[in-house]
Amino acid sequence: MFSEFFQFTFSGITLGAIYALVALGFTLIYNASHVINFAQGEFLMIGGMGTVVLMDAGVPIYFAIPLAIAMAGVAGILLHRLAIAPAKNADVVTLIIITIGASIFLRGLAQVFWGKEYHALPNFSATESISLGGATLLTQSLWILGIAAVLVTALGLFFTRTALGKALLATSMNKDAASLMGIKTSAILMMAFGISAVIGAAAGVIVAPITLTSYDIGIMLGLKGFIAAAIGGLGSSTGAILGGLLLGLAEAYTAGYISSDYKDAVPFVIILAILFFLPNGLLGSRAVERV
C-alpha cells in the first residue's frame, strides 16, 4: 500500500511542480499592477511551441530554447506597449479583460501560423524516471522543482535587494506617489510584462516534455496556475509554489483514493474554501485598504 501512496504523491508532485512554475509567472505582473495577466498561459505556449517550431526549422535545441524564450519576452513587451499602455487610466478589471482578449489573440495567431498539432519535447535528462520505494518519479519533475526554487530565490532577491524590484513594489503600492519619486512607472510595468513572459516561456519549455505542447496548452495550464497562485496568495512567490504543490497533491490523491471522476472538482473546492476562510491566500499580504 505504501508504494501506492508514494506513486500518488509523486504524481501529485509532478502535477504540482508544473502548476507552481506556472503560478510564479503571475506574481510579477500582479505585484507591479494588481493585474492578473490571463495571457500568462499563452507565454507558456510561446515558449513550448516556439521551441518546437524552431527545432523543426533546423535550429539545435540549445539555441531554440533561448530564442523561443526571448520571443516570448518580446511578445510580453509588445502586449504591454500595444494593449495595456494605451489603456493606462483604465481600472484593473478593464486591464484584466484586455489580457483575456490578448490571450485569445495570441492563441489564434499560433493556431494559424504554427498549426494545431500536439508536439513533444525531449526530456532534459537521459534517464526518464527513477524508482523510489516501488514508485516512479519523472526526472523532469525534479528539473521543474529545481528551476522553480531557483526562480523563487531570484524573485525574492529581486524584490528585496534591487532598486528596480523596490521600484516595482512601490509602483504597485501607489502609482502616483511612485512617479512623484522619479520612478518611470510605465517602464516598470513594461519590464514586469517582459520578465513575466520570460518566466512563463521558460516554464512552458520545462513542462513540455511532460505535458506535451500545442497552441491551446495555455488555457488549462494558465487556469491551473492561476488557481495555484490564488491559493498561495497572489503576489507571493513562495505562496505560488505552495499553492501549486497543494493543488497537484490534492488532485492526485483524489484521483487515486476517491475517484478520477471527481478529480476536476478539486481545484474549485479548494479555491472556494480558500476564498472563504483565507481571502488573501495562504501567504498573501494582508492588504489594507487606504482611504
Binding site: E4, T14, L15, I219, L221, Y253, A255, G256
Partner: peptide, 20 residues
C-alpha cells in the same frame, strides 16, 4: 474503470489504481 480529463497532463494515479 477510470477516467481522465482530455486536457490532463498526468494520469499515473489512475493507472496505479488499475494496476493494483
Amino acid at each position: 474503470d477510470e477516467t481522465y480529463n482530455p486536457k490532463d497532463t498526468d494520469t499515473t494515479a489512475q493507472l496505479t489504481r488499475i494496476r493494483n
